[in-house]
Design a protein around this nucleic acid. Structure first.
Lengths: 251, 251
DNA sequence: CGTTAACTTGAATTTTGTCAATGCCTGTGG
DNA sequence: CCACAGGCATTGACAAAATTCAAGTTAACG
């Protein structure tokens, strides 16, 4: 496993531990590492393996998943270019990371990573923030899986990907989905058929349009937000917003 | 998480703040704080509030949840005595924490907590481990919600609580469930009726026995493990174990 | 004790999953 | 450049699981 080492534009400056002068960043730690290429479909690491490395994704998309004893798979996340992968583990990887597309990563020794971060008062809060972000994403996913309908899940997913791409400077309405329907289904806790039907339904309603199977355009962002189930009843209406009706639970 | 105080024979060093002689622990930071009592049903903090404090739970159980716009609730966890609550946030709380039973907590200023932990080479890894444990729990919950049947969810839940109680020195087969069926349902992504029916079914099959509604005894732990969906087909059989049939996914 | 909330149980309904057939890209080889 | 194979994806008919609705029952609390 673990694709081959390919030394690309080897670093110029910086002895030992990378330090892009101004303010050190977690990503900066990886900048002197060689680029490794992982072919779409192959694994970067496996659940239960010794967690010896952390990775910075330069290009491509990965899926991260756990498998139940009888083969059922749950994808717990997709990892994009710019993301750091492999920090939230103590000893062993909690899940398998597999390339969806061809991927380029920088690899860094985990123990060294921890040492360096631990030494640096500037990097420590960044690591903390990274962990908090991962946690926040996981929380949202739990809400989606526990309480949203199939339609809301698909809507939320498209919205989530759109926003993530937007963050990295892409057009938010041109969403590209390199993963298969099976990947999406295993991420949303549904079946391929259900995902497929709902994509079709959203298309028929004019909320999205399908360029091809892996590329959709969001045509009605407001509707998509409404369908995603996050908005309150009020904001969902044309110009509603009457009572502050935040539902409260009885106890 | 982290019930006991792990007295590592670690360094005696560490100047400046709070030092319960041997080795500082996260829990130790709270030991000088006054005890606050929260009545069952009332909130400790609310989603979106400024995350100004962290808490150490001394006694009782809390539920932690998020609410969708239309009132649907998803409980993302239950917090027990010994657990630390409120660390995995950057700025604002991501969820509401509400007492299930009457609860006793120690409160600590968040900014101070971060300062102290940040100063201490002994505490930093503990905080990191805490975050990793939270992450691991969240991952398991996502798998449960995405891919387990109602029966497996209830089985997993009982098992999870049993193991948690066991960790803090209780009898693993005498499980006590202070939360309501609605809480359990909102945690497992089910309805009260489904939870109720499955508890009944498990009782009829002799897997568990119900002392009263909030206290069950596990009578067949092996069966419960099997029903929880984690075990592979093989381990599940009486003396099966034929092929190493670990399902693999095609790519 | 009586009142109320929590829980259980049953029947009908809805949503999503399963099975099966068909359609549609993509990449390969003639 | 076209034909075709094979993997994905879509669609439809049917089945199963879980939810909803509607009574009842039990237990907790004043």
């Amino acid at each position: 496993m673990l694709a081959e080492q390919m030394v690309t534009s080897a670093a110029i400056a910086s002895p030992y531990v990378s330090r892009p002068s101004p303010a050190p960043t977690l990503q900066g730690l990886f900048s002197n590492q060689p680029v490794e290429r992982i072919e779409g479909g192959s694994a970067l690491f496996w659940e239960e393996d010794q967690a010896d490395h952390v990775f910075h994704v330069v290009e491509g998309v990965l899926r991260v998943f756990k498998i139940l004893g009888d083969g059922r798979r749950a994808i717990t996340g997709f990892i994009y270019a710019g993301d750091i992968l492999g920090v939230s583990f103590k000893d062993r990887y909690l899940y398998t990371a597999e390339a969806v597309t061809d991927v380029k990563v920088h690899r860094f020794s985990r123990s060294k990573f921890e040492d360096v971060v631990n030494q640096s008062a500037a990097l420590r809060p960044q690591l903390f923030a990274q962990l908090c972000d991962e946690m926040a994403t996981a929380q949202d996913q739990m809400v989606l899986l526990a309480r949203k309908s199939a339609e809301e899940r698909v809507g939320s997913f498209l919205l989530f990907i759109a926003r993530r791409l937007q963050r990295s400077g892409h057009d938010a309405s041109a969403v590209d989905l390199p993963m298969t329907r099976l990947d999406i289904a295993d991420y949303l806790g549904l079946t391929i058929e259900t995902v497929s039907r709902l994509m079709t339904r959203l298309t028929k309603r004019g909320v999205i349009a399908a360029r091809d199977r892996h590329r959709v355009t969001i045509r009605d962002m407001n509707m998509l937000v409404r369908l995603s189930g996050e908005a309150s009843q009020d904001e969902a209406q044309p110009h509603g917003s009457l009572p502050v009706r935040r539902a409260v639970w009885p106890h």
